[in-house]
Amino acid sequence: MDVYGLLREKVFLGQEFLTWLWCMSEEENALSLSDGTLVELSLGDRLSLCPVMGQEGSRVQVRGREVALAEARQALRRGKLVDGLHLGLLIDGEEFWATLDAASLTPKGLRLPPSAPADGERNALDALHLERLALVQGFLRALDGLFAQFLRERCATLPSEGVIARLHAWAGGGAA
């Protein structure tokens, strides 16, 4: 199967992962990744949900916090999953924000922790770029760690121990 076939066939993995991230941002104070990194999740102010892959239905887009989240949770119980969200990650004390979409998990509008301004010298510019790349890679590494944690739980042998059972319980609670 080519890449775009895989993108269509397995897009639900991204949808379920983003839904799990939302759930974790509400249910866990911090997640410890397998490499020891500590990640705190915060839901931002943008969230969109759409029907599970292959099903028909409209997309729900919500902005803002209180009322909008109730609407989003209702969409969850109607069988929709997250296909885009604005998410904050506090990675070992450094704050990152990005918008993620389910199809590619490409971080957009990635806001990095501040770094020292360059003075225009070539070497200083190189150092700044290396620092920025290190921050971007740190964010991607944490995102990969979260994705791996989600996948391990999703592939759990007993369905009652898996991600879906947890998401079911979470989506059913805190009703609007």
């Binding site: 397995k10 993995l13 379920e16 996948l151």
Partner: peptide
């Protein structure tokens, strides 16, 4: 794409990942 990333992150789960099907939270 997420599936290729998944198999790269957890190659030991390749068969399980291939067998995964979409789940629904419909209530």
């Amino acid at each position: 794409v997420p599936y290729l990333l998944a198999t790269a992150l957890l190659p030991q789960y390749a068969a399980a990942l291939d067998a995964l099907r979409p789940a629904s939270l419909y209530r």
